[in-house]
Nucleic acid binder design. Structure first.
Lengths: 227, 227
DNA sequence: TTCTTGTCGATTGTTGACAATGTCAACCGC
DNA sequence: GCGGTTGACATTGTCAACAATCGACAAGAA
């Protein structure tokens, strides 16, 4: 049973459509809904026990968020990001991560440095491809935390949105091309640059990490044209 | 009367809610709807002759786009960007414009250089504060064109979104603190750096321009806390 | 065969109705 | 007066019904 006060807070602030939105987003990010798959309104509505309007509102929001594509009279589909788009997004992401590093380096606290070091250590224990299902979310968190620590809400939001759209793609990249151990070596370099409070070095380390990630991905994925 | 083929294309691709979305966005950007003002669903619905659901879907999309804030059971409001948020957004925008400059410099065509020079010249003719209503949109176009020329669709989209949210704020900034002539001198420097195909200089010029814009704004605007 | 045309079921687009909630002013007891 | 309560009104939240559209399949003609 749900905590009563939490339930009250929920009903007070969350509309049905916002809940549906969260749930569908979860389904997409978790991979329960495949890229390109059609999202049928009635199906979602029945499954969650809500009216179709709430689902439609949620889908509209997700479309604006870039997770879903809506074609008139045809329906909503989990958005497929083409190879071209993926490349574009990596370019932007590189710049954003660089900015995050530059912003964070001068203001990072000792506790935050400790936290990041601990996260890299934890990642270190899952370098085996077998443990990928553990490594992957921890990796996402590591990067997200860096953005969160900058304290720039808008930057966090834009990054989060980009990450959401890239989720399928990124999963692939990590496993190939040198793989997890190389990636985590780069993580360590990032943290040490931040610990040295060196904005230029931190920015460079983060940019290099993203660029390397993009390279790891390229070549392992065919050109995928979206309609 | 509307061109028939255009009408067909419209009906084919545009849902009512997407049209409503575009119209409400226009109202907000044009200033017909003030910051913080409540957007009443029935009012919009009647005015455009559509049902309330279409309006609701449009508002959901606009919320995700950052132009509108929706509070459960209270309604939709034109989003007010606080001073803190504005500062955050300028930091991000600075990085994005820098990126755009770095990307564009190596690939800009002669025709594009000519176009940008022409735009700066045109801006030059409206430096008088009286002509601000002309200067403002041209200035927006100038910056947007630079992003469009990079050819990076994702970058363009993120920039456009940021711009939309900043529109009210930016209007104020330009008029004060040295004003239009200083701003256009900076524009000229940007174009010349691009014309020289120098990524570092172009990036720096654009970043400097944004930073200067942020400074022009600051101090002329009181801290404005959003609820 | 191959192309066109008609029909049908599934799905989305749009609307209006009803319920739930918030707002605000008039009213009451103190 | 003043804080709190009540009730009417305005507005939003949700739903179910109806209309429009699409895709698939079958029937018929060239």
């Amino acid at each position: 049973m749900i905590d009563t006060s939490a339930a009250i807070a929920l009903v007070r602030t969350a509309s049905l459509s916002s809940l549906v939105e969260a749930e569908v987003m979860r389904l997409i990010l978790a991979g329960d809904l495949d890229s390109g798959e059609q999202i049928k309104e009635v199906k979602i509505a029945e499954r969650l026990g809500v009216g179709r309007s709430s689902v439609r509102e949620a889908l509209r929001a997700l479309e604006a968020a870039g997770l879903v594509r809506i074609e008139k009279n045809r329906g909503a589909f989990v958005r497929v990001v083409s190879e071209t788009e993926a490349r574009e997004m990596y370019v932007v992401r590189e710049a954003l991560e660089g900015l995050a590093g530059a912003l964070l380096a001068p203001r990072i606290s000792d506790e935050e440095i400790t936290e990041l070091r601990a996260r890299v250590d934890e990642l270190e224990t899952y370098l085996d491809p077998v443990d990928f299902h553990r490594y992957f979310p921890l990796n996402l968190t590591f990067h997200r935390r860096i953005f969160e620590m900058t304290g720039n809400g808008r930057l966090i939001e834009i990054y989060q949105r980009l990450t959401n759209e890239l989720h399928t793609i990124r999963r692939n990249g990590l496993l190939r091309g040198g793989g997890l151990s190389v990636s985590n070596t780069e993580h360590r370099a990032i943290v040490e640059a931040l610990a040295a409070r060196d904005p230029v070095a931190a920015s460079a380390a983060l940019k290099a990490h993203v660029a390397a990630g993009a390279r790891r991905r390229t070549g392992h994925r065919e050109e995928r044209v979206v309609a």
